[in-house]
Nucleic acid binder design. Sequence first.
DNA 1: GTAAACCCTGTAGTATACTTTAGGGTCAAG
DNA 2: CTTGACCCTAAAGTATACTACAGGGTTTAC
Lengths: 139, 139
Amino acid sequence: MLNIGDVARQGGVSVETLRYYEQQGLIETPDRDANGYRKYAPEVVRHIQFIKRAQDVGFTLRDIGDLLSLKADPGASCSDVRDRALGKLSEIEEKIDVLSRMRDVLGTWTNACPSTGPVSACPILDALEARKGPANADR
Amino acid sequence: MLNIGDVARQGGVSVETLRYYEQQGLIETPDRDANGYRKYAPEVVRHIQFIKRAQDVGFTLRDIGDLLSLKADPGASCSDVRDRALGKLSEIEEKIDVLSRMRDVLGTWTNACPSTGPVSACPILDALEARKGPANADR
DNA sequence: GTAAACCCTGTAGTATACTTTAGGGTCAAG
DNA sequence: CTTGACCCTAAAGTATACTACAGGGTTTAC
């Protein structure tokens, strides 16, 4: 059995984060020792890594809560999980599109800037000032 | 001279947003009428559009404050502005890279999922559970 | 003269994922 | 037996860019 500090070290998170996850219902309420300390089974470390990996691919804690429910639900099907993943995939692609448009516009502008001369003749500020070029990145 | 509501309509923002920008120092404190109402010169609408366009390409309000200082500073050079733009460009590219890695991993996983069968045999959950594949998208 | 539409201030709330703070017990080593 | 490392709770703070609310004046149209 592990103390919260052990789990934190092994899982690569802080003890505060663990208490936060518990409060958010992402890890099940651990038993307590006589002194009130949380006592964890070693398996909880894997569980934390599940959460971290899910975050790494873009899932929010709320999403992860859903995923964990599916995981625990014998009636759930693999396609339920796949649907969440596909949904997240399109969210991510949407974000990439927005950012790509920003990148393109900024690229154009920085290329247009001679980088010498006073700000009064700055093409970037000019571009921001007057509607010009396909700025609008959808927001 | 325009009331705050006129400026809001013409600038495409809410009056609350205008008061917020003023409080944040992004638009200069307007004169007041005898009744205490803010009175704006029509030019302020352009100013607001500057802010919005800068947001569209990824600048935060803090960044925009900097940009506005440069714009107002006769001693500033065009390259100062360009530097901010290039800095923002790399921030954006970094974000795109992170998101692209997420997309790739999620794409691989969803392709691996037959979408039939119970969650107990879900390759996506498996991937999340055990370290496997190049998940780590840098965070 | 009254109701709708507009203006004002100051404060608090929103979302996300934590981190920090305050105040206080517990445990292991020397 | 005390010091340092560890544990506990509950509440507040962080960042960003607003939005909403409470409570109250002003202006315009009919």
